[in-house]
């Protein structure tokens, strides 16, 4: 996955191509958000799309998160297929009422009459020195909400092929793009086809311990697995990729084979996504476990701004490998 002579694309480019395909395929699809037009998005994801599709379909909005998410809901209700970009997950908190109290509830509270086929994309995560108000990993919060689907693409293929499935979903879908992944480069596997949004993916098969992660922590977890392999520990790496609904079958199937599990989540530990995964393992796989479930999470502090402090506060390869060793030790 590192840049080399076989690299021909990046995560950012594949997200863009996915939107280009969606805009070309379906007139109901449009993109809106802050700086998505002329600027090409704060992280360059939509660069050039306004030239191809024009300012009606690639719309720069005022700095009004509640408004552009709420308007996205309205447009979805009216039959459009909006893609709303929120610059970062932190800014999505300004639209939380629209997401939770509106998008996620309208179908139920209208007796099934008002579906909201809305896709919301946003950047999540730390590691880029953006400090405590631009670095949250809140996808676990959103995974708490009934009525929506939550995705976290971590590979080039998921960046490219999840969007079409998300747009085809009749319910609101939130897509979390970890900021550290945009420059991820490599060769795209074009043969994998549309992504099934109900299944996790085994990124590295193994027999000794299940390392369960998603998003920006996937690369570090795969590195940890390589290191463990040198020590004779054969780790399996599971990329959850769909955070709601969680794919219990893949998670538990893996744990039943390896009998050990480490959950890696950049989000905070307490009441977080890692707690949910660990609880499901305890509920459904307790008698298959040979060791307590381990968790490697972000430190329970506001994300530091100083580079060395930020690094210390996030899950890193060493810590993941150490946790895996504890389960097999």
């Amino acid at each position: 996955m590192s840049p080399d002579s076989t690299s021909n694309t990046t995560y950012r480019e594949e997200l863009r191509e996915a939107m280009r395909e969606a805009l070309a395929r379906d007139e109901r699809v449009f993109l809106m958000g802050e700086d998505v037009g002329r600027y090409g998005g704060a992280f360059g994801v939509s660069l050039g799309l306004i030239d191809q599709f024009g300012p009606d379909r690639v719309r720069d909005t005022p700095l009004s998160e509640s408004a552009f998410v709420g308007a996205g809901i309205g447009a979805a209700i009216a039959g459009m297929r909006p893609i709303v970009e929120i610059m970062t997950v932190n800014f999505s908190l300004l639209a939380l009422d629209q997401i939770l109290n509106n998008a996620a509830t309208l179908l139920h509270m209208s007796g099934g009459q008002v579906a909201v086929p809305l896709v919301i994309r946003m950047t999540t995560g730390a590691g880029r020195r953006l400090a405590a108000q631009h670095s949250h990993s809140l996808e676990g919060w959103y995974a708490h909400i009934p009525g929506i689907r939550v995705l976290a693409p971590a590979t080039l293929e998921d960046a490219r092929y999840m969007l079409a499935s998300a747009l085809a979903d009749p319910d609101p879908v939130l897509i979390f793009e970890h900021g550290s992944l945009y420059n991820l480069s490599g060769q795209l596997d074009t043969g994998c086809g549309p992504v099934d949004l109900d299944t996790a993916a085994i990124r590295r098969p193994g027999n000794d311990v299940s390392l369960i992660t998603h998003g920006g922590s996937l690369g570090k977890t795969l590195q940890a697995a390589d290191r463990l392999a040198e020590e004779g520990i054969d780790a399996e790496v599971i990329d959850l990729r769909t955070l709601r609904p969680l794919d219990d079958t893949t998670i538990l199937g893996s744990v039943r084979r390896t009998h050990r599990a480490v959950v890696i989540d950049e989000g905070w530990r307490t009441a977080g996504l890692s707690a949910e995964v660990a609880t499901r393992i305890a509920e459904q796989g307790f008698y298959d476990l040979d060791a307590p479930v381990e968790r490697v999470c972000g430190a329970e502090v506001p994300t530091p701004y100083a580079a060395q402090l930020e690094e210390a506060a996030l899950p890193q390869t060493d810590g993941i490998a150490a946790a895996a060793r504890r389960t097999v030790g």
Binding site: A299, E300, V301, P302, A306, Q308, L309, A312, A313
Partner: peptide, 29 residues
């Protein structure tokens, strides 16, 4: 540069057992 333990400062005004626990784990690490 601030010391690494600075990340555990000022999370709560009067401290917190959860933060203390993480800090202790961190010191050990």
């Amino acid at each position: 540069n601030p010391g690494t333990m600075a990340i555990f400062e000022n999370v709560y005004a009067d401290g917190s057992s959860l933060v203390d626990e993480e800090r202790a784990q961190f010191v050990e690490y």
